[in-house]
Amino acid sequence: MAPVSTSAVLLRAHPYGETSRVLRFLTEDHGLLGVMAKGVRGEGGRGVTAVSTFASGVLTVYVKPQRELQTMKDFACTRLRGGLGASLLRFAGASTVAELVLAHAESDPNPTLFHAMEAALDRLEEASEAVAAAALAGVWGIVEALGFAPQLEACIRCGERLGEDEVGRFEAAAGGILCARCGEGSQSPRVGPIARSQLQALLEGRLDAPITFPRRHLALVSDFVAYHVASRPLRSLRFLGDVLPPDPEE
C-alpha cells in the first residue's frame, strides 16, 4: 500500500495509549480524515511539537478506504499557528471553526472548505486589533464554504432588494433577511443597514468594518449555525460567547 500525501490542517488530537495520538485532519484531497499517529507522544518522538492542534502541513498517510482510522506516516508541519493559544479570543475562534468543520465536513474532498479553514485560522492568528471580527468572519466563512450562506441583499420571502436605510429582520430559519414589510410582527433580531454591511464584510472575510456589537453578531451566527449547519449546539460557541468583548450600552 503506497502512502499518499495531501495538504492538511489538524483539527483535533486525542492521546491514545502510552505514546500515540488519534488525530482528525481536514485535508485538501481526502476531506475529513481520522488518523492514528503512532509514537508521537513518546520521548523523542519525531514531530512531537508539529502535531499541534490548528497546525497546517503536508500529511503523508497510508489510506485504506474502508478503515475508520488511517495510519499516519508523517506530518511535515509548515505552519504551527502557536499564536492561536496566546489569546483566549483567538483560541475560542479557532476552536469554533474547527468544531463546525468536524460537525459537518465529510470524507469527500472539499478544497473550498479546506481553503476557508486555512484562511480563517490565518486571519485569527494575524489579526492585530479586529480579533473578534476575525473569529466571527471565520465562522461565517466556514458556513459559506459548507454551502449555507445567508441571503442578505434581498428579502428571503418576497425577493425585493432591501432599501439603503431599511431595517429588516434576520430570520435564521428562513436563511436570511426579511424586508421590513415581510418581517412585520417577527420577533427575530432587527438588522439595519450598518449591521447588514458588517455581516456582508464578515461573510467576505473582510475585517475592515469595525464590529460594534460583537455579541449580537455572535447571536446571529449561533442561531444560523444551530438551525442550518450543526445538528447539535456547538460547545465552542458558548466559550466564544464567554470571551468576546461585551457590547457597548446603547
Partner: peptide
Amino acid sequence: NASVEGEATAVY
C-alpha cells in the same frame, strides 16, 4: 502542556 490548548489555559 506545550500545546495550543495548554498555552490558552496558561494565558487564562
